[in-house]
Simulated scan of single mutants.
Amino acid sequence: MVKEEVQQLVNYLIEIEHVSTTLYLAMSAYMDRQDYTGMAKWLRLQSNEERTHMLMLIDYLAGKDGEVKLAEVPAQPSDFGTPLETFQKVLEHEQFVTNAYRQAYEYINPVDPQTGVIVQDFLREQIDEEAQSLTIVQRLKLASNNPAALLVIDQELGQRQDGANAPG
């Protein structure tokens, strides 16, 4: 059985992944409404990836005979601004998630090294999550308000394939 404090922390990480799933889904719907279908697809796949992470954490905790507690997810906005503003919010959110996993790892690893390995795998994946988001933000900044450049970026983001990556 997993220790109570570790269980609470894993449930918190589950909540973060659950919020991430709904946030990216809301962003996807917004981008689709703005006719940025490539950005919408990228965000939808990101939502799916976060859902996969949430399910992995749920399965891990349940497999350790822990109690999974799904918190209520807050409603998400329906307007995220320009593509640049939207992806700046993605980057900020990924930085928040990275920080949450870092803090969880620092606490969990000495207390429960087995769970620490799981959290470390997610933390490693955050390196890529932040890098992707940062690259998109930088490219959108370069595009500025040039419609042709925005459409090229939209098209490129639409090439993303479903890769609900498992950490590790």
Rank of each mutant, 00 (worst) to 15 (best):
S47D: 00
N109M: 14
Q76Y: 06
K64L: 12
R102I: 08
E72D: 12
M31K: 06
L61P: 00
Q103V: 03
R33P: 00
R51C: 01
D128K: 00
A71L: 09
M54C: 06
L123W: 06
T86A: 13
L70G: 05
Q103T: 03
N109K: 15
E106Q: 09
A29K: 04
K89V: 01
Y107H: 02
M56E: 12
Y101L: 15
D32S: 09
K89R: 14
Y36Q: 01
L91V: 03
I108K: 01
V117R: 15
N109H: 11
D121A: 14
S133Q: 04
L45H: 08
E92C: 07
R102M: 12
T37C: 09
R102V: 06
E129I: 04
I136S: 02
D59I: 01
T37A: 12
D35Q: 15
Q132A: 09
M27E: 02
F122S: 04
K89T: 09
Y60H: 14
E50H: 09
L43Y: 11
Q103W: 00
S133L: 00
P110L: 02
P110N: 02
P110A: 01
L134S: 12
Q114A: 15
A62V: 14
D35R: 15
T86C: 10
K41R: 14
P83R: 13
V119N: 08
T115A: 12
D128P: 00
E72V: 12
K41A: 04
L43R: 13
L55P: 01
E50A: 10
A62I: 13
E125F: 06
Q88C: 01
L134D: 10
M31R: 04
M27C: 10
M54R: 15
S78D: 12
T135Y: 04
R44S: 13
F87V: 00
E50R: 14
D121P: 01
M27I: 10
E72S: 14
F80D: 04
A131I: 06
E72W: 05
D112E: 10
A29Q: 10
Q76C: 08
A71H: 07
D79W: 06
S133Y: 03
Y36G: 02
W42C: 01
L55N: 08
V97C: 06
G116Q: 02
E92F: 05
M27P: 03
L134H: 08
N109R: 12
Y30A: 09
M54P: 02
T82F: 05
D128N: 14
Q76F: 07
D65I: 10
M56S: 13
D35V: 08
L123A: 05
K89M: 13
P113S: 07
D65K: 15
R51V: 02
T98G: 07
E85R: 11
A71R: 05
G116A: 09
E92Q: 14
T82R: 07
Y36S: 00
R124F: 04
L70I: 15
K69F: 11
Q114W: 00
P83N: 09
L70K: 09
V117H: 11
I108G: 04
Q95A: 05
M39R: 03
L45Y: 04
T98E: 11
I58F: 06
G81Y: 07
G38C: 12
V90T: 11
Q103A: 03
L43H: 07
Q95F: 00
Y105Q: 05
K89H: 01
L43P: 07
R51H: 08
R102F: 07
E50G: 07
R124P: 00
T135I: 08
